[in-house]
Simulated scan of single mutants.
Amino acid sequence: MTPSREPERRARDVLDPVHFDALAGGAGSERTLTGNEDAFVRRRLRPRVLRGPGTPDLSTHLPGARLAAPVVVAPTAFHRLAHRAGEVATGEGVAAAHGLLTVSMMATTAVEDIAETGAALWFQLYVQPDRAFTADVVARAEAAGCRAIVLTVDSPVRGRHVRDERHRFTDLPAGLVCENMRGRDGRLRDLVVDPDLGWDAVAWLRGTTSLPVLVKGVLHPADARLAVEHGVDGVVVSNHGGRQLDGALATLDALPAVVDAVAGRVPVLLDGGVRSGVDALVALALGADAVMVGRPVLWGLALSGADGVRAVLDDLADALAHAMALAGAHRPADLTPDLVVVP
């Protein structure tokens, strides 16, 4: 079950080393970054037999979307560091794969332009101290056709990215900006992470938009319960791809307790470390309703643009269907925790 590193190695060969590290790197010593993948390596599968699974049906309902497979593209910043067409190419690839793209607030392409690709979209949001500006960003996402808001809640301060510090990478190259950080007047704002942000932000956001609201960045079951109590429409188990608190629990290790805390009241997604169809199967068996993938999509984008993105998503869905058939499961709901063991 060791994940393949080949796409990442090939992407390293074609990208500027500074930009590769900006996309690939994690916080601190990167214990959490590597731990996300190691958590899958530690698991083994105990498949069922003679269950006549037939051709697996991967179709999945999530807030605002019905998907062909339980795979969502995670919000990742700066796609134009990976490919000149940036998030437009990502959107085209996602649309071709009939998938769902979570647009980053830090995208290098405006949400309106990404929406023109025809991809189904969610929008990732950092609530800013300037709530009027934040509301305008949400309104832009709604007007562009985004189907849900994914509120990132794990960033009271910025993680320390040692690779970026080593390269002194602090600004995007000339001509690239975070297009979703423009105000009504066209002026660019700097993204501010707010150490004072509290649960009242969820209530404020729900009063600002009619779209479903998911919270992303939950690892503790107590926070999962609070999220449901505050009326969210989904919980994303995430440690920000290992880019925030170094040493934080791997998302797969955090997943079962969060699933228990949510108790089926809203969907639970897992973000972090999924590199194969078997990884996705393990997450689904441990209670996730869907998985998010981030860096693999960036590597596909770097290698082949929209075609590379589509290939990553199609390959992941095909590999998940194959693994499900071998495990004796017809639908994701057939995958149960007893299929997964830690030897």
Rank of each mutant, 00 (worst) to 15 (best):
L252H: 10
T34K: 14
P75C: 05
L191P: 09
A115I: 04
P332W: 09
H98T: 12
P343M: 01
D57K: 00
A333T: 14
V312K: 08
V282T: 09
G247H: 03
P75V: 05
D223K: 04
L284K: 02
A174Q: 15
G26R: 02
T2G: 11
V282K: 03
E142W: 09
R166K: 15
S4L: 11
A74S: 14
R48I: 13
A257V: 09
R43A: 13
L205R: 02
L100S: 00
F123W: 06
L62F: 05
L62V: 12
A24N: 13
G328Y: 10
R182F: 10
G25E: 08
A39T: 08
L151W: 11
L45T: 01
E37R: 10
V228R: 12
H61K: 15
A69I: 08
A283W: 04
V49N: 12
R295D: 00
S238N: 12
N36T: 10
A323E: 04
R160D: 04
L303G: 04
D223W: 12
R187C: 08
T55R: 15
L249W: 00
R275I: 12
Q244K: 11
F123H: 03
L245C: 07
L255K: 00
A85E: 15
V127E: 06
T108W: 05
P56I: 08
A248S: 13
A203N: 08
L197G: 13
D289S: 13
A110Y: 05
V72Q: 02
V49K: 08
A333V: 12
D233L: 09
A290F: 00
V342M: 03
V111G: 01
A321I: 04
H83K: 10
A290T: 03
V73G: 00
V103N: 01
L67E: 03
L313N: 04
R80K: 09
W199T: 07
G54V: 13
R31K: 15
V213N: 00
F123L: 05
K216S: 12
I149D: 02
D334A: 11
G175A: 00
P337H: 11
R182M: 09
T152Y: 02
H240N: 14
V193S: 09
E8V: 13
E165P: 01
H83P: 08
A288G: 06
D279M: 03
G64L: 07
L219T: 13
D233G: 14
A250H: 03
D334W: 10
A95S: 03
L269A: 06
A250L: 02
S4A: 12
A319Q: 14
H98Y: 00
A110V: 01
I149M: 09
G231I: 13
A321M: 07
A68H: 08
S304H: 14
P17D: 02
D136C: 12
W299C: 04
E6H: 11
A323D: 04
A89V: 07
V258A: 07
D223P: 12
A74F: 01
T170D: 15
G277I: 00
R163C: 10
M324K: 04
A203L: 01
A325H: 13
S29A: 15
T134G: 06
E6V: 15
G99L: 02
L188K: 06
L101S: 05
E165K: 14
A261L: 11
L58T: 03
V268P: 05
E30Y: 09
V215E: 11
A132W: 11
P173K: 09
P63R: 04
L326N: 11
V258I: 14
G86R: 06
